[in-house]
């Protein structure tokens, strides 16, 4: 078990007029190899939940264990935790600060105590991993890169630390369609190397349906469902919670309403395959 959350609750601004409950008795576990998606409308507690994973928010009640590091302990080992659990925030390009891309990417490894050679090597590999040209960008200021390149540089800064779990908060927000696909394919390709599990927070249900094998639905700080994408999108009425269905699921549901019964699929390729099978069956019967 890589992550074990039990009965986690959190209240912002405790004992002030601005008090607001963000999480309420959330329990879940993440095992090695999981690709977990977290969905929920704005203010459902997604961000609060993932910030807990990295010890960025102090535990108020409940218990939380990540890689056998007990976050309810008095002084948890934050350094090890943050090295092994990488976190990519929304719009990570706004956190670039160093003079050169290379120095920015090396910031994490240096903080985590990599030797100079190791940090250099990790930075070079990470920059290449995200598809940037190392020799071209390493001495440039991160602020003069293009939007998509900045995002890649920011991700390189996390990957250079060699995390075992990667937590992504809206990784594709603000990217163009090609950039979105590149980003998700990159994350998928990294899984299985040093990266063991990925947790993605997203509002894009198509991405969740296609890239995750488990989906967690949060609503008003309560965990409502922890199931496979098929179970969730075909079983639950997620629109009730201010979310939408993946467009493939919408099409399948509309087809079923018209009497075209095809299996529960989640991506375009499978949809086309099933439709073709359906049409062929119809031709045979005719």
């Amino acid at each position: 078990m890589q992550i074990e959350i039990k009965d986690l609750s959190y209240v912002y601004g405790k004992k002030t007029p601005f008090e607001k409950a963000a999480l309420h008795g959330v329990s879940l576990t993440v095992s090695e190899g999981d690709s977990v998606g977290i969905i929920g409308s704005t203010g459902s507690g997604k961000s609060t939940l993932i910030q807990h994973l990295n010890g960025l928010i102090k535990l108020q009640s409940g218990s939380l264990k990540v890689f056998d590091i007990d976050l309810s302990a008095k002084k948890p080992d934050y350094k090890t935790l943050r090295k092994k659990l990488g976190m990519l925030f929304q719009y990570p390009e706004y956190q670039l600060f160093a003079d050169t891309v290379e120095a920015d990417v090396k910031f994490g490894p240096v903080n985590f105590g990599f030797s100079k050679e190791d940090a250099d090597k990790a930075a070079k590999e990470a920059i290449e991993m995200v598809g940037l040209d190392y020799d071209e960008v390493k001495d440039r200021s991160p602020l003069e890169l293009s939007g998509g390149q900045k995002r890649r540089a920011a991700i390189a800064g996390i990957l250079a630390c060699r995390p075992e779990i990667l937590v992504l908060d809206e990784p594709t927000a603000g990217l163009d369609p090609a950039g979105k696909k590149d980003m998700l394919d990159l994350i998928r390709s990294l899984k299985g190397s040093f990266l063991k599990s990925v947790i993605t927070v997203s509002h894009n249900m198509d991405e969740i349906a296609e890239y995750c094998d488990r989906v967690i639905l949060l609503h008003d700080g309560v965990l409502l469902s922890d199931a496979t994408p098929t179970e969730l999108f075909y079983g639950e009425d997620v629109e009730k919670y201010g979310l939408s269905l993946p467009h493939v699921v919408k099409i399948v549901k509309l087809l079923r309403d018209k009497g075209v019964v095809i299996p529960e699929v989640l991506n375009e390729k499978d949809l086309v395959k099933e439709l073709k099978l359906y049409l062929e069956r119809g031709r045979k019967n005719a």
Binding site: Q51, N54, L56, K79, R82, K83, G86, M87, F89, P92, Y94, Q95, L96, F97, A98, F107, G108, N111, F112, G157, I158, C161
Partner: peptide, 30 residues
């Protein structure tokens, strides 16, 4: 920003006053 830099191992509450001021650069620039 502080959270993001902390996630990359930055430390804001360690060391003497100069070290701390320097540690704030990754926050102040963004």
């Amino acid at each position: 920003i502080m959270m993001a830099q902390k996630a990359r191992g930055a430390c804001f509450d360690n060391g003497n006053i100069f070290k701390r001021a320097k540690a704030l650069l990754p926050v102040l620039i963004p």
